[in-house]
């Protein structure tokens, strides 16, 4: 894959040098981050619609926080502090499965339970990462929390690509069944849908997506990019098809805008923060549109 990325980078750099593309495209890291944005945008957009339907936004935040612990463990066991994927994936998947297992076996409300896990994962992750950052790099906490496009490399892009392929391979054939089980579990059971198995599959997908996006968007902002584009699209969608595609569009534009805008105007913003701020602008726009144009109001037809 490295040769493929290199070819793409050379193509973009050539176009930038010829003046066809803006000057920023002369830098390999800009092209890397844009390639990631073009994958992350549609991926998070599509999954975000399911996250909204399943009301699992805080779940992905809890997993994002767990990634902090994953990074810290990775550094402690000797993984590279810029890409501690083995420990991040292992810890976050175990965390996600444990959270889902507990959710199915307690009478506590889902909100409360996720809140408890979220707080524990944040406290544990922040403590551990501050402890290890003294040993390696003091900026590690900031880059894990808010993303750092400068450090995206071929390995990160490969991981993102593999996660995307797994998500598409499982998510597309199971999309309808996942959506039905989130609407009514009894109905789903009767229709032969394995509700519990699907729940675990979705939790694992959401976890690996979150981990793969940590470097670009940041651990605490992945959840925002899963939620805000879907919430923005929901304001102006009249059916499922427009909801999903509008979410994908807003999510992709937010990723591209969040990467290009700070470069264009030399703004000292972390990539994750800028991406989420662009998404927030879309949310404000669609909310205003909904208020202004009667066609978007939820009146009965």
């Amino acid at each position: 894959m490295s040769a493929f990325y290199e070819g793409l980078r050379n193509l973009f750099i050539g176009l930038a040098e010829a003046g066809t593309l803006p000057e920023a495209f002369q830098y390999a890291f800009v092209i890397n981050s844009l390639l990631c944005a073009l994958v992350i945008g549609p991926l998070l957009g599509c999954v975000g619609t399911m996250v909204v339907a399943k009301r699992m936004a805080f779940f992905s935040q809890a997993v994002g926080n767990a990634a902090l612990t994953g990074v810290a463990i990775g550094v402690l066991i000797g993984e590279s502090y810029t890409s501690p994927y083995i420990s991040m994936f292992s810890f976050c998947i175990a965390f996600g499965i444990l959270l889902n297992y507990t959710k199915g076996r307690t009478k506590m409300s889902s909100d409360t339970l996720i809140g408890v896990f979220l707080s524990i994962s944040l406290a544990l992750g922040a403590s551990l990462i501050l402890f290890v950052s003294a040993r390696v790099n003091t900026h590690i906490l900031e880059s894990v929390l808010f993303g750092s496009i400068l450090t995206v490399n071929d390995l990160d892009m490969n991981i993102l690509l593999v996660v995307t392929v797994i998500t598409l391979a499982l998510g597309i054939p199971l999309y309808n069944r996942m959506m039905v089980s989130s609407l009514n579990q009894s109905l789903a059971h009767v229709r032969g849908i394995k509700v519990d198995a699907l729940e675990y599959i979705f939790v694992i997908l959401l976890t690996i997506i979150t981990v793969a996006c940590v470097k670009i968007i940041g651990a605490i902002l992945v959840e925002a990019l899963l939620l805000i584009p879907a919430a923005a699209a929901r304001n102006i969608s009249r059916n499922l098809k427009s909801f999903v595609w509008m979410t994908v569009l807003i999510s992709t534009l937010s990723c591209i805008g969040g990467i290009l805008i700070p470069m264009q105007w030399d703004l000292p913003l972390p990539s994750g923060g800028a991406i989420v701020l662009v998404a927030a602008i879309f949310f404000i726009l669609t909310t205003s549109l909904k208020g202004i144009l009667p066609v978007f109001r939820e009146a009965r037809m």
Binding site: L187, R191, N239, L240, F243
Partner: peptide, 13 residues
């Protein structure tokens, strides 16, 4: 507020 129409719901099933 989930934008799911009657037809969408039946299609999902």
């Amino acid at each position: 507020t989930l934008p799911l129409t009657v037809r969408d719901f039946l299609t999902l099933l």
